[in-house]
Simulated assay, not measured.
Amino acid sequence: MHSVRFTAESSSDGVVERDFLVGEIPGVLWAPASGADHAPIVLVGHNGGMHKKAPGLRARALHAAAAWGFNVVAIDAPGHGDRPRTDEDEDERARTEIRQAVTARDTPRFAAASVRFTASLAEQAVAEWRATLDALQALPQIGPDAPVGYGGGISMGTAIGVRLTAVEPRITAAIFGGGFFVDEPVITAARQITVPVQFLLPWDDEHADRSSGLALFDAFASAEKTLHANPGDHRTVRWVGLDDTFLSRHLGRV
């Protein structure tokens, strides 16, 4: 198992931000400067085409660390952020096809290419998230008994997060979001999820029909699940209307 290697550190407004590597996986850990050891861990996924310090993600992470005392973690998905990309690899060909489909306004082609690309990426990303969680829980200030939640991510962040939550028993509550093409493997994974779930649905996404988001919400086997729909597409929807105490209640901070 790879250990965590911290590579940079900064702090502001009572939160310490530390860049790290787990093997070749680049990530960032936000933690309260005066927080207690063994605080809950919240994993946050970024959208497709973005990275671990995307402005909206970082803002939510800073708030969760400052307001609730969480250790908040993000990693770059394969081929994103500080991860290497090549013009020859299959992922780059998929990105090209997605861009061409968007330009041509060819929704069926865009949907098929997006599903293939996300499925390929998610298989690797789930394994990397689990390796990162293993490494973080080996740190004495976090420890193996720290509660774990999945803290959101529209589109790709949820496509990965649903698959991760379905197979990772350490995750005991999750926040997901719509705005992507939901295929049968994602629905199958959702049916395995029984932890409490909050789901944010972009009501006006130009590509992913809202019915697919409703189908995903319906598939969650959780006894406690809530749906929040906001105007806008997955790029502009704001994280408003969600219960701000949801993760804190389920991770033992209130």
Rank of each mutant, 00 (worst) to 15 (best):
A67N: 13
P140C: 08
A125E: 05
I98Y: 02
W129H: 01
E90R: 15
T132H: 08
A131V: 01
A173H: 11
H234A: 00
S248T: 11
F199E: 04
D233V: 00
R116K: 14
E206D: 09
A208C: 09
L133G: 03
L242D: 03
F199K: 02
H80W: 10
S12I: 00
R238E: 11
A39N: 03
V167S: 01
R18C: 02
T226K: 10
S120W: 00
S3E: 08
V42Q: 05
G178D: 06
R170S: 01
M156Q: 10
H234T: 02
V72W: 13
V16Q: 04
P231G: 05
D209Y: 11
A113H: 09
A74K: 13
E17G: 03
S120F: 02
S10L: 03
A127E: 09
F220H: 08
T172I: 08
D89C: 00
G177Q: 02
W129N: 08
H234W: 05
S11D: 03
V15S: 08
V254D: 03
R99L: 05
A66E: 08
S222W: 08
L216C: 01
S114C: 08
D233S: 10
A8K: 07
W68Y: 15
W239G: 03
E92H: 15
F181R: 03
E97D: 06
G151C: 08
G56L: 13
T107Y: 14
A215F: 13
E17I: 01
F246C: 07
A190F: 12
D91Q: 14
Q137L: 11
R109P: 12
V22Q: 06
L29F: 13
V195Y: 11
M156W: 01
H250F: 08
K53Q: 11
I193W: 13
A77C: 11
D91T: 12
V182L: 05
R60C: 13
A221M: 01
V126L: 04
F117D: 04
A208H: 10
N230G: 10
V240T: 13
I171M: 11
G81Y: 15
R163P: 09
G241N: 01
Q198Y: 13
F110K: 06
D89K: 02
H250R: 11
G27C: 04
I98S: 09
D91W: 15
T245V: 11
A94G: 10
V126M: 02
P40L: 01
W239K: 14
V15P: 03
M156D: 02
A54T: 12
A101W: 00
E24D: 12
G241R: 04
T165S: 07
A208R: 12
K53F: 11
F70R: 09
I75D: 13
H80N: 10
R60E: 12
A125T: 08
A67M: 13
W239R: 15
A221D: 02
G23S: 00
A59K: 15
G153P: 15
R163Q: 05
D243C: 05
G177F: 14
E128N: 03
P55A: 07
T165E: 07
T86D: 04
V16T: 13
V162N: 04
G153L: 09
A190G: 07
K52F: 14
S3V: 00
P147T: 04
I98V: 00
R170G: 05
V28E: 06
S120N: 14
R93H: 15
L21N: 10
P202R: 14
D243Q: 01
R18W: 10
N71C: 13
